[in-house]
């Protein structure tokens, strides 16, 4: 599904190398988790994959299926099936959540040559999905993320994901800022989307989330590289001992 090879990334305006050769392959239907110390490059990886400006790829490749991700615009990557749930969802005053969602859904459908969703159908689907995420009608009417609490913003990300039905979902610290109940809600939302044709890359600092969303593989990222990969037990090890042992082991 997602294949990243030898990815090197530096900041566009600065001589600062952030990713120093990332290799990662997520198979169809799999859930992979990435853990790692602050500043190790996890968010950068997710941004570079989704096409944010400000970064320069100096080497390496990334493919989603047979689509060369690094060559195309962010919206084309989205239409190809990539979705990033932001670590810090963006507030957009003046743009209604509903307008935003419908524009996004239909833009992607159009890009894929599919028929657009009618207003009535869209409303029905979005209401149903919002309900399972306990997002009330009022939040749907408000401008995108404006005045939403931290947890509400994260639930809104999952709602977008549910509406857009991507193939490859990257969740960047979706668990941070969530209370225990919201964490369950979001995990259920994610688990409901799990299917053979859909993969997840879950970036997190805490084992807790992985209790709900069971990963097939756990990677540890440090200093711009994946330094260790293993099964779910790797997350437990991090939770108990921190990163010191793992960092010592590889250096």
């Amino acid at each position: 599904m997602l294949k990243i090879e030898n990815l090197h990334v530096k900041l566009e305006d600065e001589e600062k190398q952030i990713l120093k050769g990332v290799n990662l392959e997520v198979g169809a239907g799999q859930v992979h988790a990435i853990m790692g110390p602050n500043g190790s490059g996890k968010s950068t990886l997710s941004y570079v994959l989704s096409g944010r400006e400000g970064y320069e790829v100096t080497d390496g490749e990334a493919h989603l299926g047979d689509v060369d991700l690094l060559d195309i615009e962010p919206e084309e990557r989205a239409a190809a099936g990539l979705f990033l749930a932001f670590q810090y969802p963006v507030e957009i005053p003046g743009v209604g959540n509903m307008t935003f969602l419908r524009t996004a859904v239909n833009a992607q459908r159009k890009a894929r040559g599919e028929e657009e969703m009618s207003a009535a159908e869209f409303l029905k689907v979005v209401r149903a999905k919002a309900k399972t995420l306990k997002i009330d009608a009022d939040m749907l009417k408000r401008p995108v993320n404006v005045g939403f609490s931290g947890g509400e913003k994260k639930r809104n990300e999952i709602l977008q994901m549910a509406m857009l039905e991507p193939k490859m979902c990257i969740l960047d610290e979706t668990d941070s800022g969530l209370d225990v109940d919201a964490m369950k809600l979001v995990s259920e939302g994610v688990n409901a989307l799990r299917s053979e044709g859909r993969s997840f890359l879950v970036i997190t600092h805490y084992q807790r989330l992985l209790d709900h969303i069971k990963p097939d593989v756990v990677h540890i990222m440090a200093n711009g590289r994946i330094i260790k990969s293993g099964g779910p037990e790797l997350a437990l090890e991090v939770e108990q001992n921190g990163y010191a042992d793992i960092l010592a082991e590889v250096s």
């Binding site: 096409g51 989205a78 833009a107």
Partner: peptide, 15 residues
């Protein structure tokens, strides 16, 4: 930042 957020949801840059 807002522009990228919208694009990342599949909305083209001009839209």
């Amino acid at each position: 930042t807002a522009l990228f957020y919208l694009q990342s949801r599949g909305i083209s840059k001009p839209v």
